[in-house]
Design a binder for these strands. Structure first.
Lengths: 258, 258
DNA sequence: GATGTTTGTCGTACAGTGTGCGAGTGGAAT
DNA sequence: ATTCCACTCGCACACTGTACGACAAACATC
């Protein structure tokens, strides 16, 4: 669309000395609307109505809806509270970021569907990344590994949380009881996986348990596994302590795209 | 919307004995359109035009656009080729799934923006999960850890790949040269992170390197870290070998939502 | 004070979107 | 011959993002 690859963050915001509409008020109202009614309910006209102004007035302060979404996205990143990297230690900071981000995404489910969509380079996202890099550097990570390690953590958190949130909101939107959902899901799995007998048995085992708690445990498990793996790299700085890992398997090209 | 929580996969597809339009032809054509022109270009009218039929004819075979997207999503999962879990071994299977999924997402960039959006429970996604569980069970994972471990792997792969794809397509859409983008990005970072002096220096170091290759290395690093961490759990079955990890930090509630 | 200029608001309009509805088609079964 | 059924499709509705240009109010300059 735009040729020199611009983003909200490069362009100056409107002077903002104004008495009426302002960029931050727009963003706040948009977040409220998103939180209250979900991502589908956010239209410029509805937002304008909530602001008590015309729909197209918004375009004076914000270039496009996409840009507005970038702004609210960064607001979500701003909501994770960061500990002092010196006091919390490496693992503490990592855990805080992980759970903070996870909780922020649960608090704003619409953000989960946007997170893979556009690059997160707003000031709050950058500050979060900087904090994490700081903590990881204190821990002893150097050079490229520093970036790799923090990227890995963020990747896991996002990849684990986004589908969870998707599930949760999908359930919430259909007003079925959790009972019904469980039954329907089991039927689905049974129907679709009848030639994978292990699956249906295992899925049956879930019936008794609380799904939310189970998912939290799963998150904990994956997170501490990843952190353990990272910690192991601190001992052997430039190699994979358990070998393999850097050789691509069975005819799969690694970095064939781009 | 629908009260008993239905999904495409529960409902029988239309008998499909038809000569004309059919569910699979629709899905194939939709994929072609998506691959060629991206996710914004997929509208029912355009799809109908490509099929040589009216736009609303599609609704006989497919309940809604959402359902259609679920179908094409599963087709993507079907594209990752799975090795024989017996022959490839645990780590081999894990690597194959990871790179296979990653490559599939790069081959169909539109899928990356859909992946966090709706639960993946189509037959191909289920088969992939079953294969992975099989391999992980052979490796020695049991009970809940079996699920946790495979979920962790998928989480990392998705969370690492989706933003990468998002970046790549964002760049592709703006017809800027990679040079321009680099310069603009650096300016962005510099502007936004001027109180994080470490960041801008580190970002400068990237200028010489190939971004794609760098990202592939990052993926490799995170993946092998996670696998190492998982492998460590095989030795100490029911505890975290490096302690911590299951206690939530500094006043952050763990599973407070849902 | 008069005159331009910037800053900001908004109504209208355009080209699209997903999809409900009901009318129409052809072939098969009665 | 008639009834039924699997399909196809045109129309219409409500709604979307946003380009454009007409306004108004605040401010600068003469």
């Amino acid at each position: 669309m735009e040729q020199p690859f611009t983003s909200v963050w490069t362009r100056e915001p409107r002077p903002a000395k104004s008495p009426g509409l302002g960029r931050d008020q727009i963003v706040r109202t948009a977040m409220a609307l998103l939180d209250a009614e979900g991502v589908d309910a956010l239209s410029m006209r509805r937002l304008g109505a909530r602001l008590g102004s015309g729909a197209t007035s918004i375009y004076w302060h914000v270039a496009s809806k996409d840009e507005l979404l970038e702004l609210v996205m960064d607001e979500v990143f701003g909501e994770v509270s960061l500990p002092d990297p010196g006091a919390a230690g490496w693992r503490g900071t990592a855990l805080a970021v992980a759970y903070g981000l996870r909780n922020a995404l649960f608090a704003h489910p619409w953000a989960a569907s946007l997170i893979g969509t556009r690059p997160a380079i707003g000031p709050n996202a950058v500050r979060l990344a900087a904090r994490m890099l700081d903590a990881f550097e204190r821990a002893g990570f150097r050079e490229a590994q520093l970036d790799y390690a923090s990227a890995a953590l963020l990747s896991f958190v996002l990849g684990a949380t986004a589908p969870e949130v998707a599930w949760q909101t999908a359930l919430r939107r259909s007003e079925a009881t959790e009972e019904e959902v469980l039954r329907a899901t089991r039927e689905m799995v049974a129907q679709v996986a009848r030639d994978h007998p292990g699956l249906v048995a295992r899925h049956k085992a879930y019936d008794a348990k609380d799904i939310g708690a189970e998912r939290a445990l799963s998150f904990d498990f994956g997170l501490s596994c990843l952190l353990d793996g990272l910690e192991a790299r601190l001992a052997a700085p430039d190699g994979a302590p358990r070998q393999t890992g850097t050789s691509s398997p069975a005819g799969q090209a690694r970095s064939d795209m781009m």
